[in-house]
Nucleic acid binder design. Sequence first.
DNA 1: AGAGCATGTCATTTG
DNA 2: TCCAAATGACATGCT
Length: 766
Amino acid sequence: MLYLKKYFTEGLIQFTILLSLLGVRVDVDSYLSNQLPPLREIILGPSSAYTQTQFHNLRNTLDGYGIHPKSVDLDQFFTTRRLLNQVRQLDRLSVPSTELNTWLVHRDSETVVSTSSQPSPSITLDNGGGLEDVNNPDATPAMRGGSVGTESTYNLNAEDSSLGAVAPESNQEQPGSRDGNDDLSKEDIDLIDILWRQDIDLGAGREVFNYSNRQKESEEEEKPSPRENKDGNEEQERWRNGVNLQGAQPVDGETGESIPEQFPAPVVVTAEIDSNEEVPSTSQGLPLAPLRPAGETQLDLEQQWQDIMAIMELQAMEVNSSSPNSSSSSDSGTTDSNTVVNFGLSTRSTPVNQDVSLHQASLPSCSQDFPPIFYPQVDSTTTPPRTTMLRLSSSNSSSINSTFGATNLTGIFIPPHVNSSSTNITSTPILPDPFSNLLEESMLDEISLLDLAMEEGFSQAQASQLEEELDSDSGLSLDSSHSPASPSSSETSCSSAASSSSTSATFSEEGAVGYSTDSEVATAEEGAVGGYQPGYSKLCRMSYQNPSQFHGLPQLENISHNHTYNLPLSSVFAEDPELPISSGKKAMKHSKLQPPQDLYDKHSSRDERRARSMKIPFSNEKIINLPVEEFNELLAKHHLSEGQLALIRDIRRRGKNKMAAQNCRKRKLDTIINLEQGVHDLRRNKGRLLKEKMEFIRSIRQMKQKMQSLYQEVFTQLRDEEGRPYPPSEYSLQYSADGSVLIMPRGVTTAEQHRKPEKKQKDKKK
DNA sequence: AGAGCATGTCATTTG
DNA sequence: TCCAAATGACATGCT
């Protein structure tokens, strides 16, 4: 029986694990099918947060929390635990690998991003659609260049700096994490390289280059290269390729124009690039791995994964074009099928957002970085601003001085590097970033909470449970985690603590009443409930009266206490003489081939024996259980000596006290169980609240990123009367009372707005 | 032999 | 004040 149970348990667990895995897949698929293709592969990797979450849940469910040490389920518990640990290890192993893949992908895409980032602006330039674009291609290109420059580790940089147009090569040369590269055959790549180099060697200008590039693209289109399926499937392709998405799409040259664009830009802005090299492009140039100091990898795996999840959510919103931000940007940006014209300003926001997502995805540690704002005038700095990335976590939270609804956007969207204490930029004003501050504090609070929880005596399992509850987005966690800790858990495992406790409680009350009843009632009560059942082991017993059921079960064989508290010995022997075991330890011990009378005496309690020796004319049961009045009547009916009366009173007192002691102990146990349950519930509640907090933090982060990108978009497109851009270091955007956005010199309060003639009003596009 | 546990008993408190 | 119940403390028996 035991082994059967064991095997069944193991099999069940394994089956559950398999189901979990399958369920995860299914869930992920369904989830990703909602347009989260980019991370599909990442998530569908060996491990996923979903998987982890479910395992956590499963673990919690079977964690054994609350299992009484004596519970017969302990064996199962350990088996379960072992299996689950194995699964968990698998899960954890897989997570890093997934992230690693993401990282690599991102880096490639990053390279691509720099190239790709240009398409939108460059396209605008080519088309001349943007008024300001012609005048200041610098801004965006410079930023691109900056982003490129930042990635000095890539071949692309060198080529970019010299030729300003080799990105595709580099991309192709990159061992392919990129989809485009993957799809391209080596011949195609070689051909592309040759053609590009020819163009470059011939000194082809940007336009020429573009043209040739297009021709090549068209030529290649004739070939069955995978790239060409972009038309209809490109987006899908991109998504499938994961993080590359953004970078890949321009590079893939669905338009063919995007690629060339990027190169000229750096050339034109060379001087600025130098100065801004370190400055990531506003829209896309999010410095990633290269820029990030190794020591800054502070965020743990958990945080990283949460970032990825946040990215997924963000991307999902964007892809759905349901993003509240923009009706225009989202739709145009997400779909590659859009024509070149679509890459106008309106589309930028999307790439920006995607970049943000990308960075987070690929560089979880950078997840909180904010895209820096491009500063055209920063060139003055001999030491280019280092890593314009703002690490939210690293920046110290001085104070949250403004709410999100603050009219002044300056503080909110100050270039990230401004906040970093390590930055050398002196020209740019340092303004607090409320969002980052808020985020920091929230994160810190959470971390501190977790730490506190650990310090408070959270067991590892409980802490992991909390973690899981924080992690798990699925609704499974709560239900599954609800568990063993509570009496109800043991309820499921055996006869159930809850049920037994409740029933026993009920019966205990009845038992009290039962004292006044006859022996049959008492016997029935004990048979049903066993009176007071101390300990879980007893609670778990289906029926102590028939321990033979558990023969062969070692754990249960050890449980053989006498629970016939209220049962007089006479009734014990009279009603169940065949089962000496049921009569308890004493019965077992004394049941060894002893004469019936001797046995009878031995099994008698002291009071029984005393009563017999004193020749008390009625049973101890009556003495104990009769109501006071009846008891007095009984005493009055018989002529009893003082000794007999004293003994009878003692018997009654002790009998009642014995029952009272049993009830008292039972109540203690119930109280302990309830307290445990309460603690468990509180912890669950705490975990839930923390989870909610995490979600809020995540959403705030997303909002901040979106606002950041929007701010940058708007700001970089602003031009004064002479067509010059406003230097972000000198101007900032502020809300006006009517909801419009004003550009104002920094340091000028809203009250002084009227003094600035150059201020412009511009509708803020979402 | 001693620890740990379950149970019984006593003394006291409480309602 | 009495009684029953509750409970802490201790004793006993068993594994």
